[in-house]
C-alpha cells in the first residue's frame, strides 16, 4: 500500500498541515511569554534572551526544527492552495460564500501570505541581526559566555520600535495573524480528527481567545516600547 503514504493523500496532508500548525501555536505562545518580559523587566528579558540566543540546545536543536516547521507550514499551505484552485477551473459567475462560511476560513492563503511577508521584515529586524552578531562577527568564542554583552537585547528591541511606520506594519501584521488563527486554531483540531460534542465547543472558545489575546498582546508590546522610549 505504498502509494497510500500519508504525505501523498489529501487527508494525510491536512493532518500534517494541522500538526505543523500545532507546533507553531506552541512556539508563538513561548515567543509571546518572552516578549511580555520586556514590558515587565529589562533584566529578566535580557537573561532569557541571552539564554535563548546562546544555549546550544535552543540554537542547534530547537531553532532548526522551528525553521523547518515554518517552511513546511507555508510550503504545504501554498501547495494545497494550488491544488484546491486547480480543482475548479471554471469559476462560478455568482458565489455567495458568506452564506455558509466565515471570511477567515475562506481566506487563509491571504492572511497566511500577509504573515509570511511580515516574517520577512521580522527576520530582517531581529533574526538576521542575531545571526550577524553571533556567527559572522562574534564567532564561536561568543558561545563560551565570557566577554559578550548580555544586556543588549532590551535596548535593541526598544530601538526597533522608535520608527512609527515599523510599529504600524507590526500592528497590522498581528491583525492578519489574528484572522489566520481565528480559523486555524480550531481547524487544526478538526483536521487531526479531534472532534467531540463535549470538547469541541470549548476548543472553539479557546481558539477565539488565543487568536485575540496573543496578537493583541504583541500589539500592546510594540506600542508600549514605541510610546515609552
Amino acid at each position: 500500500m505504498s502509494e497510500y503514504g500519508i504525505t501523498k493523500s489529501s487527508v494525510g496532508r491536512k493532518i500534517l498541515m494541522a500538526l505543523s500548525g500545532f507546533f507553531l501555536l506552541v512556539f508563538l505562545l513561548q515567543h509571546f511569554a518572552i516578549n511580555m518580559l520586556s514590558v515587565i523587566s529589562d533584566d529578566a528579558f535580557n537573561t532569557v534572551s541571552d539564554f535563548m540566543g546562546y544555549n546550544p540546545l535552543v540554537q542547534f536543536a530547537l531553532q532548526p526544527v522551528l525553521i523547518f516547521g515554518v517552511i513546511f507550514h507555508l510550503a504545504m499551505g501554498m501547495y494545497l492552495e494550488f491544488q484546491n484552485t486547480k480543482a475548479r477551473n471554471k469559476k462560478y459567475a455568482k458565489n455567495n460564500g458568506a452564506a455558509n462560511s466565515s471570511w477567515m476560513s475562506r481566506n487563509m492563503i491571504i492572511t497566511g501570505v500577509m504573515v509570511l511577508l511580515f516574517l520577512g521584515l521580522h527576520f530582517y529586524d531581529f533574526w538576521w541581526h542575531e545571526i550577524t552578531e553571533k556567527y559572522l562577527e562574534g564567532g564561536a568564542e561568543s558561545f563560551t559566555g565570557s566577554g559578550r554583552d548580555t544586556t543588549r537585547y532590551s535596548h535593541e528591541l526598544q530601538e526597533k520600535f522608535v520608527d512609527i511606520w515599523r510599529v504600524i506594519i507590526y500592528c497590522l501584521s498581528f491583525v492578519f495573524l489574528s484572522l489566520h488563527l481565528l480559523h486555524g486554531f480550531q481547524s487544526a483540531f478538526q483536521s487531526v480528527g479531534f472532534r467531540h460534542s463535549k470538547y469541541t465547543p470549548l476548543i472553539k472558545k479557546l481558539g477565539t481567545a488565543y487568536a485575540i489575546i496573543i496578537p493583541a498582546g504583541f500589539i500592546f508590546i510594540a506600542l508600549f516600547h514605541h510610546f515609552n522610549h
Binding site: 489529501s10 494545497l80 455558509n100 462560511s101 483536521s191
Partner: peptide
Amino acid sequence: FGNCTNTGACEV
C-alpha cells in the same frame, strides 16, 4: 477533488 480546509460550507 480539492483538499478540505474546514470552512464548514458543505455542512451548511
